[in-house]
């Protein structure tokens, strides 16, 4: 069940002193970050800087070794896996670099998946999915398999799948990484315009400045630490 959103009296999503190590390699070394409701934030940094790890920790996919993540006043790092999984399904949407659509399902069926996992009946799910495909300019493509779509079209299906449950936060990991310049621009225009229209918070992981320029602000991750662009509020801690 979706969390009831509290009135904004602080950040919607916060990470405090986040530390993650894989073997002897420290991916995050004490990250503090605040993201407010409705913000579009780009997390930038070179390859291997820890930015994708940060996304996984903020989204409750990965538990940090130490530190806490608070979403909507709930410490999600204290939840068990089942509760975090339920939270991801109800409140979060995800867009990945290669869309990660299920190849044997049509575009529209891919979009219905999160709805049906949430208990929505198939007929209602299909109707909602069709509406979102229309909003994303994919009218007439619903019955195509992912392999029959261009990279940009497939990524827009992935955006529809991420937004169809009306999530509070969308996490996008290199959403334009596999696209040419024009397709990348269309994807970012689509994602950010829909997010702004619906008040959805978006966290975009990218190494590409142009993709990041669609965000309200950017934070820079380097060697597992946020080195620039963080809010003064978090830096004071």
């Amino acid at each position: 069940m979706r969390m009831q959103l509290h009135e904004p009296a602080g950040p919607l999503l916060s990470g405090r002193d986040l530390r993650v190590a894989f073997g002897g390699t420290e991916a995050l070394r004490g990250v503090n970050i605040d993201i407010h409701a409705g913000e579009i934030v780009a997390v930038m940094g070179p390859s291997g800087s820890g930015k994708s790890t940060l996304l996984h920790v903020l989204a409750g996919v990965l538990k940090p070794d130490t530190g806490s993540v608070t979403y909507n006043k709930v410490e999600i790092t204290a939840l068990n896996e089942a509760a975090r999984s339920a939270l991801r399904l109800s409140d979060f949407g995800f867009v990945f670099q290669f869309g990660q659509l299920l190849p044997d399902l049509t575009a529209i069926d891919n979009v219905t998946i999160p709805l049906m996992l949430s208990g929505v009946k198939r007929r209602d799910a299909l109707r909602q999915a069709a509406t979102w495909l229309d909003r994303l300019g994919l009218n007439g493509h619903g019955d195509k398999l992912p392999g029959e779509l261009s990279g940009g079209q497939a990524q827009r299906v992935a955006i529809a799948r991420a937004l169809v449950t009306a999530p509070q936060v969308v996490f996008a990991d290199e959403p334009t990484g596999s696209l040419d310049s024009l397709a990348a621009e269309n994807v970012m225009v689509t994602l950010t315009e829909l997010a702004r229209a619906t008040g959805t918070t978006v966290v975009i992981i990218t190494h590409d400045p142009r993709t990041a320029s669609y965000a309200d602000r950017e934070v820079i991750v380097r060697d597992g630490r946020i080195t620039a662009g963080q809010s003064a509020e978090a830096l004071r801690l």
Binding site: P209, A212, S213, A228, G229
Partner: peptide
Amino acid sequence: LDGQRAEHMKRLR
């Protein structure tokens, strides 16, 4: 360099 990057990103936005 971080300060200059922020200025460039502002212009890009």
